[in-house]
């Protein structure tokens, strides 16, 4: 009488179907598509002030940005990585359990029964998948728009000069990958908060507050080496992929840090959820 199998419950596919049709998902993807469009328009039709070329030591940010699709995609990442991507990652993981609780759908799924750990696992996987696809959509949009608007110039960095097509693509992939990794900590915080509250916005807010606090603490130099435990400490390490050769040290530490913190946060979330009385 094997009519039920825990392995069949709430597959990633089903969960993706459930999440993809949400307005919120569409809005997030719309935002990351709109951002490069706005920047292209600003660069194309904005004032062309300061067109005197590069003076010694001057940083022509817009000129650098408009030097080709790789640079443009990179600038898209640069502009959004500090805050927009953090918020969206926090949204995708923070809303996932709390949102289910607020719709009252969680109790029916858990009573179906979707095993609790499987529920969290699928939720986390889908949240991360959405976050990653959003990041890729951002990069792809910016790349295509950059190609259309600025021609096919390869990656130019003030630190390493111009790079070839292959090298430029590798660098862009490394930076995109690393930024994805740095989103793990806010995502993990949001996920833990999501398990602890029935208010979706509360979970997103918790992650954002923690990122903001980390940024403030990171700015206080007097804290010294304590700052090494802050996520912001590792957020900028992707710049090491822009040098003459890629320097992995800092990024490797950042990768380890983010993955470990994420695993720990999700582990705590599972522990909490295991023993939680579902009252929603």
């Amino acid at each position: 009488m094997e009519t039920y199998s825990a392995r069949r419950t709430l597959s990633v596919r089903v969960e993706l179907t459930r999440q993809l049709r949400r307005r919120r998902t569409a809005a997030a993807f719309g935002l990351v598509i709109a951002l490069p469009v706005v920047v292209v328009l600003a660069v194309e039709f904005g004032s062309s002030a300061g067109g005197g070329g590069l003076a010694d030591g001057d940083f022509d940010v817009f000129g650098l940005m408009a030097s080709g699709p790789w640079n443009f995609a990179l600038s898209g990442l640069f502009f959004s990585s500090a805050f927009l991507l953090v918020i969206l990652a926090a949204m995708f993981l923070g809303d996932t359990v709390a949102g289910e609780a607020s719709w009252s759908t969680m109790r029916y799924l858990l009573a179906a029964p979707v095993p609790r750990r499987r529920f969290l696992f699928v939720k986390a996987v889908v949240g991360l998948l959405l976050t990653l696809s959003m990041l890729l959509v951002l990069v792809a949009t910016a790349f295509v728009l950059g190609l259309l608007a600025f021609g096919d110039g390869t990656l130019v960095s003030p630190l390493s000069g111009a790079l070839g097509v292959g090298e430029s693509s590798v660098r862009l992939a490394v930076i995109t990958g690393y930024i994805a990794v740095t989103l793990l900590v806010p995502a993990g915080v949001a996920f833990l908060a999501s398990v602890s509250t029935d208010v979706p916005l509360g979970a997103v807010g918790a992650a954002v507050v923690i990122v903001v606090v980390a940024n403030i603490l990171d700015a206080i130099e007097a804290l010294g080496s304590i700052r090494a435990i802050l996520p912001t400490r590792y957020a900028g390490a992707w710049a090491d992929a822009l040098g003459p050769s890629i320097v992995w040290d800092e990024m490797a530490v950042g990768l380890f840090y983010n993955v470990t913190v994420f695993v720990v946060l999700v582990g705590i979330a599972v522990l909490r959820f295991d023993r939680k009385d579902v009252m929603s």
């Binding site: 459930r18 029916y108 009573a111 609790r116």
Partner: peptide, 20 residues
């Protein structure tokens, strides 16, 4: 929590829950 036998139960508790 998650006992397989729950699959033989259909439940409706404290109001409906649907994806709006």
């Amino acid at each position: 929590p998650g006992a397989p036998v729950l699959s033989r139960v259909g439940a409706f508790v404290e109001g409906p829950g649907f994806l709006p």
